[in-house]
Design a protein around this nucleic acid. Sequence first.
RNA 1: CGGGGCGUAGCGCAGUUUGGUCAGCGCGCUAGUUUUGGGAACUAGAGGUCGCGAGUUCAAAUCUCGCCGCCCCGACCA
Length: 585
Amino acid sequence: MRASQLFFPTLREVPSEAEMVSHQLLLRGGFIRRVGAGIYDYLPLGYRVIKKIEQIVREEMDAQGAQELLMPMIIPAELYQETGRWQEDVLFRLKDRADREYALGFTHEEVITDIVRRDVRSYRELPLNLYQIQTKGRDEPRPRGGVVRGREFIMLDAYSFDRTFDEMDLAYEKMRVAFSRIIARCGLDAILVEAESGAIGGKENEEFMILAESGEDTVLRCADCGYAANVERCEIGHRNGEKPRLHEEHLRMVDTPGQRTIEEVTQFLGRKPEELVKTLIYTAGGEIIAALVRGNRDLNESKLARLIGAKRVEMADAETIERITGAEVGFTGPIGLNNVRIVADREIASMTNFVVGANKTDAHYLNANLDRDFKVDLWGDIRIASSGDPCPRCPGTLDSLRAIEIAHIFKLGTLYSEAMGAKFLDSDGCEKPFVMGCYGIGVSRMLAAIPEVYHDSDGMIWPISVAPFEVAILLLNPEDDQQCDAAARIYEELQMKGVDVLLDDRDERPGVKFKDADLIGIPIQVVCGKLASEGRVEVRLRSQKDKQAVALDTASSQVMFLREALFRELQEKADRFYIGRVLKV
RNA sequence: CGGGGCGUAGCGCAGUUUGGUCAGCGCGCUAGUUUUGGGAACUAGAGGUCGCGAGUUCAAAUCUCGCCGCCCCGACCA
């Protein structure tokens, strides 16, 4: 491709709409443009990267026996209604001229399950793994970071169907390998973490996380044993007898006029947040729950729901709280709270003489103590883990890291097949629901995650496997015949060998060409400049500062050598993953 | 949905407090000349319903009201 023919509008200044480095660079390099909030154009350079990522995805998915198909983007309401997901608020809904309802596909479990229930009858047709690479629509509450979280985005979604849970486990394992290899071939290092399943459902699931300070997610990891989990999910280890209980002082009610928040109460009473116990009123189905966590902790709603066996819990409204406690919001406490199940975080067991709300407006209790003043009905791990918390698997300590979620894999079991009546006839003559898994990679998110990790002050540095071009030839002075001839020769030789090469033949000054080549991050640069008069050109890797002068005759074979080395490095990275040995931190 | 910020030429911004002197600057773009190893110099140009709509006023980018859009933080979320 000749740069003079290529549409890549680069910007000298950082557009004000972008905060994340990758977002800034993708805009500046002419890879993407914003159309609306969370909606982007992929310009030629950006789309080249997307297509390369997709190709890697196809190769690795096919290698595990998955088959590509394509499902619709417009999904009739009835399909999502079958599983109750029509209620999901990320759905983009639309109506046709006859007022029939549809949604843009946001993930395709229902659609694929519908395909399989119609046309797969026998265990003989299993296992089956079907995937697509498609644009998804999700009405995200808050798009951010350019294509990191868009309302429209390109995703690989794969779905496995098996006879048994054991076979599903194997399908899941294969996808773990495929995903690990895809991510490695794209040049990234992921860590695999336990996660919440969210709107997809199912129990066991893991996310592939790319460590990055600018990431939206928080991961907690134990350096000793390797346990890692999304903060939404992360368990907290329990240490017995961490702190000796102190002498129990007399319970005392004190006036705390208008002091509602932890911050206000601690300030007013001159106590530390960790000397308080927060009492949070939740509703779960019809039941009211009082949940207790230490003052400086946050409650994890998923953990609470799981502990009490509810599908989900919701913070009670002010009216409910006043009815239950007899006090305004801000003065809730466990003492004298009747007809409410009291659930407490295990950490509270080691606390003595703590502060709680008095269930009386403008009052708190000092020196509250367990058992003496109130009883806990259920103990458990219900708070959000944070850096420094004990590891749940070993005596180690958890560390907190920021990350970008690039992929998520789920063991669904029979969640969807049962809800939708998708069954096959097994060898024993019994009808059974398919055992399913589903697997997603954010392809367009990868477009952002890669430069988020690989960049310097001059621009992006693409891994060769996904670079918009593998080699850039910088023809510094197109008026100079020797430089032109040198550039044309290398260009042709490389093209002949199937190399994806960009020839910068634009009528621009050298500085512009250097800056643009660096900005768009082409991994190998060939400079055809003054040295052409001596029959030499310079070769440079984008990732390194120094250039190497080489004879024109050997230039293209030099480039081929570097190219092979770069590809080999990525391939070796991917080859660390195979069935029986997958990524684990 | 809550909090904060922003909206003036393709991009980055000044001007808004205190209405008139206000359609400005830098980059980019067009033409010409010179230049050609890290975002060239000079000359001459093109480009704007100042987000939209009402209102106040002799007069509105500037004040008032309403609306829309975008970004960030939070809530929420594959």
